[in-house]
Design a protein around this nucleic acid. Structure first.
Lengths: 386, 386
DNA sequence: AAACTTAGTTTGGTCAATATACAAACTTAG
DNA sequence: CTAAGTTTGTATATTGACCAAACTAAGTTT
């Protein structure tokens, strides 16, 4: 049984968080505006704002326009009160970014990797973090945390249980990085991270129920319900790539048969290509030259993606489906077959208002997602403790 | 933006609810126990308990066992302070129950129907409600509400958007019943109701993430995440019966192809049966006589159910999957092929700890689910208003 | 210049939770 | 059969958070 008791401290913490969130979303904004938006009393807002001012998370600027009376003091979110580090570990690269508290990228580093052994990768990651911290501007709070996205199954303790493409299993990544840097560290599945990134900073900002499909070498998915990432029982859900769309179909590397990703991923694309040495990029190049074979290939993949998206819509009835990761470069040829498949398969009631979109943050979805996560944790826990 | 402000009233409401919930779950229980369990101060508990006593929702009984000091006053939930009405509208029957506030069934009425026209069905429903109210014992609050489960898509306003098997569309059921009885009315999809029933009173009581598969004439699903029913954007989610498990497969009545329910529902079973006039009951009778053809048929259906359950587990990573509704009578022959399909298809990490179970409430899942919903709403809203 | 508006602060009040002290009722050791 | 210790539950005063209302500040409108 969950035993959360409610008292005045909880009330204050929540209201303070509400005021801060309002400032972040609506800046510049006056105290009077906040009172109006939140329904809190002017006096309460004033008091809470003063608390937050002392914490350096917001600042005042010169008076704004009068609307017929005294001019308001405008409040702004101090997005450079601290910085977050976001890392995206891919199968053949490590991408790292330093962002301010609003998710703007200040520094970006990208390093190809060949050796995917745990020690080799974490060496690269550590080195990148060190250099980001060195190059970071001065600020009140410094680095507020490190977020890492991983292409694999991660549990709630930050252990990478299984990452087939990296050949990792049971790696205590969070503990390892936390010990080295003594900062809050958070590990998330790459698709979950991408979903959160798009929700906070990209294509999904005005939606509450979003499914983000990470269509890359395999297929993963991040599921956002009621505005929050759904994590399943053990923290690992969203293995939508292994939903069966063809009973007794082609063998999948997971041991099952007929999984979605066998028909709709980058791997599926390359396997179906007639060329021996095809890459996603080479096929896109062909399609751009109007090569009908390449275009037909993309359309076939698109139809298969559509089958899975149909399943997602019927199962979750989300407001929005976002397609992300590498296959986005072929959007031009994929979009139509996906939409057609939905139109001919999905229940009309579910189809009616759902939005299909492609990633807006491109390669940064996952890194921005974990960095946004870090910021959220900092704002929620870190500051109220002060 | 959601603008929930927090104040002392909210605190009190939540703490009061916490205390009442504790009494319901742990009765008989003393004030001191509650303070210990909830973390609230003894005095606070005392005051809140007195409030709830005045509302007649709990009562005191003689002193309990001493544990070395003064003997405690035991508190009990007054489960007969009011009664809830639960209705399950099926394709060829209407089942109605009167329950106390703990979900015990006091009166049950079941009436077969042939005419599924809206007016005919609501006449039956109204008549049943009237007679239940007449037969209801005296109590402080009387009938606290009416819940109705419907085999179709229901929106958050209680309108039945589409119920193919009843041939209903756009029926303002909630409004209609509310006007007649002047009681709170709540409409829910049959599978959602069943899921909630099993969660509160049946097989799912100790789990937080549950998928309830309603395997009947069609297939529906109720999705419980973090202990709460997931309702999707418009209140209609969980159309898992129309997830595609065979791309370009058999035509489905929904207009799509290869939907799960085309392969795994009661309809699928009857269609595959060699006998012209087969029914679920006749096939079960055959299987009980060891008819190998009938048994093979159930096993085939079981394997198809397994494919869909695999998809559910990989997508949601739930703690428990409950199979309910009519096909449960064939549990004996279905269980093994379902489990085998999961073992050979589902990701090992997801498979590891998930429970597969069959409904414990049998035909009452849905009716008990809506009735439990009514009780919950009453306890949460109804009483705090007093 | 007077009247009105709007922004933000100060003051005093209310309410819920809490700490503390205490009474009631029971057990146990000698 | 006491006396000491425990446990349950209540009474009282305090704390702290929000709020309403009065007030100051700084503008606009007529």
């Amino acid at each position: 049984m969950q035993t959360i008791t409610w008292n005045q401290q909880v009330v204050k913490r929540n209201n303070k968080s509400l005021v801060l969130q309002t400032i972040i979303e609506k800046e510049p904004v006056s105290r009077a505006d906040i009172a109006q938006i939140t329904g809190l009393n002017k006096a309460t807002v004033s008091s809470l704002v003063n608390d937050i001012l002392e914490e350096n998370l917001i600042f005042e600027s010169g008076p704004g326009e009068s609307s017929g009376g005294r001019r308001p003091v405008l409040l702004h979110f101090n997005k450079t009160a601290g910085y977050a580090i976001g890392i995206d570990i891919g199968v053949n690269y490590v991408l790292s970014i330093l962002t301010d508290l609003k998710g703007n990228i200040l520094i970006e580093k990208n390093q190809p990797i060949k050796n995917v052994a745990f020690e080799a990768v974490t060496d690269v990651v550590s080195e990148m973090i060190r250099s980001l911290i060195l190059e970071m501007p001065e600020s009140s709070y410094g680095a507020v945390g490190i977020g890492i996205g991983v292409p694999g199954i991660v549990d709630k303790q930050g252990t990478v249980l299984f990452a087939p493409n990296l050949n990792w299993s049971n790696i205590s990544l969070k503990q390892h990085i936390e010990e080295e840097f003594k900062l809050p560290v958070l590990i998330e599945n790459e698709a979950n991270a991408g979903a959160y990134g798009e929700k906070q900073l990209g294509a999904g900002q005005s939606f509450q129920d979003i499914i983000y499909v990470s269509a890359g070498i395999g297929i993963g998915a991040g599921i956002i319900l009621n505005g929050e990432l759904y994590q399943g029982k053990n923290g690992y859900s969203g293995e939508l790539g292994h939903v069966i769309i063809q009973a007794n179909g082609k063998k999948c590397s997971c041991g099952s048969q007929g999984c979605w990703e066998v028909y709709a991923s980058e791997n599926a694309l390359l396997e179906m290509a007639p060329q021996q040495d095809a890459t996603l990029e080479s096929l896109v190049a062909l399609a751009e030259e109007n090569d009908s074979e390449a275009i037909a290939l993309f359309e076939k993949i698109g139809a298969s993606i559509g089958i899975g998206v149909n399943n997602i819509i019927n199962a979750f009835n989300p407001e929005q489906v976002i397609i992300g990761n590498r296959l986005v470069v072929a959007k031009q040829w994929l979009e139509k077959p996906i939409l057609e498949t939905i139109q001919t398969h999905t229940l009309p009631f579910h189809q009616k208002e759902v939005q299909l979109q492609f990633s807006r943050l491109s390669v940064h979805s996952a890194a921005l997602g974990v960095s946004a996560f870090v910021v959220e944790n900092f704002i929620r826990d870190g500051v109220t403790v002060l």
